[in-house]
């Protein structure tokens, strides 16, 4: 009993997690310092930490630019994805006409669009944004479509009896709120894919000499500054994590309260 009491502080939130991360960092440091011993093969956490300091000025600009690309692509992708998904979910004719072309387009990796992004939109922010758009739109579209398709008939009947005439008022009052969790889930997946696309498009220089991806590939990799490269990798991962958390906080926990009883979100 006494021993258990002694270890009780471990149950506090964050303690175990901190131990987990620290262990990985320590092992990484030991392997880098005593086994690999070559910075360009495996920079140590210590070196990466200082790399953050040396890149502190450019990194803020790069983050800003990459988020801009991401925002452009996700914004347009969400608007177009929800609209097309709603049209396909709402009208059988649109569904049948668009389904095959969507299936083909969806199968093309977004990165394969980089050449056209550059040719069509030149080396602008819109060019990387376009690649993000291609990456983000399909999960949003498909989830919106699924949401629209799976509305229980009973809710439609109930709304009609309460005075909802066909069309817009049914969509606004029943179909859209019902589909919101689907759309939110699709957007979350789209955000993840979109962020990958930002890095890839920038690596190819789709938007010129800017962004996290561009610098990671064309500066740090090209000059074999692997410590800085790892610093950028960590930042890219942390931003993805942060974006996901912010989205979950804003959308899932606030507006989708009612779903708690139905499924574990």
């Amino acid at each position: 009993m006494k021993e258990k009491k002694g270890l009780h502080f471990l149950k506090r939130r964050g303690i175990i997690e901190t131990i987990g991360i620290s262990t990985v960092v320590i092992i990484w440091q030991l392997v880098a310092s005593f086994i690999v011993k070559k910075t360009y093969l495996l920079p140590s956490p210590y070196e990466v930490f200082f790399a953050f300091y040396t890149v502190r000025e450019v990194i803020l600009v790069d983050i800003y630019i990459s988020l801009l690309h991401f925002g452009i692509g996700l914004g347009v992708g969400t608007a177009v994805g929800i609209t097309l998904g709603a049209l396909m979910g709402g009208f059988k004719l649109v569904d049948r006409a668009m389904d095959p072309i969507m299936e083909i387009l969806r199968a093309i990796p977004p990165i394969a669009w980089i050449p056209f992004a550059i040719i069509w939109l030149k080396l602008t922010h819109y060019s990387a944004g376009f690649v993000v758009f291609v990456g983000a739109i399909f999960p949003i579209l498909i989830n919106t479509y699924t949401g629209f398709k799976s509305v229980d008939k009973i809710y439609i009947d109930a709304a009609k009896v309460l005075g909802c005439k066909k069309g817009m008022s049914l969509i606004k009052s029943v179909v859209l709120p019902y589909s919101l969790p689907y759309i939110a889930a699709g957007t979350r997946i789209g955000m993840g894919i979109g962020w990958m696309c930002v890095v890839a498009a920038e690596m190819f220089g789709a938007s010129g000499r800017v962004g996290l991806g561009w610098r990671l590939w064309n500066r740090f990799y090209a000059l074999h500054m692997m410590d800085k490269l790892v610093a950028y990798m960590i930042i890219i991962g942390l931003i993805a994590l942060l974006l996901d958390r912010i989205f979950r906080y804003l959308v899932e926990e606030r507006t989708l309260k009612w779903r708690k009883g139905m499924v574990a979100v």
Partner: peptide
């Protein structure tokens, strides 16, 4: 057609779960 001058209570649970 349907109209609110005929109120209906369904056999299945028909409350809008998001409200």
């Amino acid at each position: 057609g349907p109209s609110p001058d005929r109120g209906m209570v369904f056999q299945e649970f028909s409350l809008f779960p998001w409200r």
